[in-house]
């Protein structure tokens, strides 16, 4: 049963990789057409109501899926993955901020926020990864049910 499940997941994963390759090809084609249009206009996609609504809807969906994964996870690895998904939703919701500012000086503010978010969240995830490794070395398991008490007791 396990090998069947792994095989099914492998097929789904291969399919997803194929779709990813197709998406990259389409993105390259779109970028090329955007460069062609650059001579006529600005060549930068416009952030309108439709795009912003699509992005926010996807961000909320990913966030809710991450919450659902977190509250129903039974081990710490799945908890870590759900936390990374939450940060992914945050990155999605940052995209419309790039259109709210005008001028080059103001346009770099969202990017500064994005850099801060990337580094702070990656630091937080690094700490969680280290905590999971230490937890496993002591408890010999990553089961979330074994986490019963907290607090700093020193190493």
């Amino acid at each position: 049963m396990r090998s069947l499940c792994a095989s099914r997941n492998g097929k789904v994963l291969s399919f997803a990789l194929m779709i990813l390759s197709a998406a990259v090809i389409v993105a390259n084609a779109a970028a090329a057409s955007g460069e062609e249009k650059a001579g006529e206009g600005t060549g930068v996609p416009v952030m309108n109501d439709v795009s912003a609504s699509l992005i926010y809807t996807a961000a909320f969906t990913v966030l809710l899926i991450a919450y659902l994964t977190a509250i129903s996870s039974r081990d710490l690895i799945r908890l870590l993955i759900s936390l990374e998904m939450m940060f992914g939703a945050v990155f999605l919701s940052l995209i419309p901020m790039f259109s709210l500012s005008s001028g080059h000086a103001a346009a770099s503010v969202p990017f500064a926020i994005a850099i801060l978010t990337v580094f702070v969240s990656s630091g937080e995830l690094l700490i969680l990864i280290a905590a999971i490794v230490m937890f496993d070395s002591r408890k010999k398991s990553t089961d979330a049910d074994l986490v019963r008490e907290g607090g700093d007791r020193g190493v």
Binding site: V44, V46, F98, S102, F111
Partner: peptide
């Protein structure tokens, strides 16, 4: 959102 995304 009516502005263009501008970043350099």
């Amino acid at each position: 959102f009516s502005n263009q995304v501008s970043f350099d």
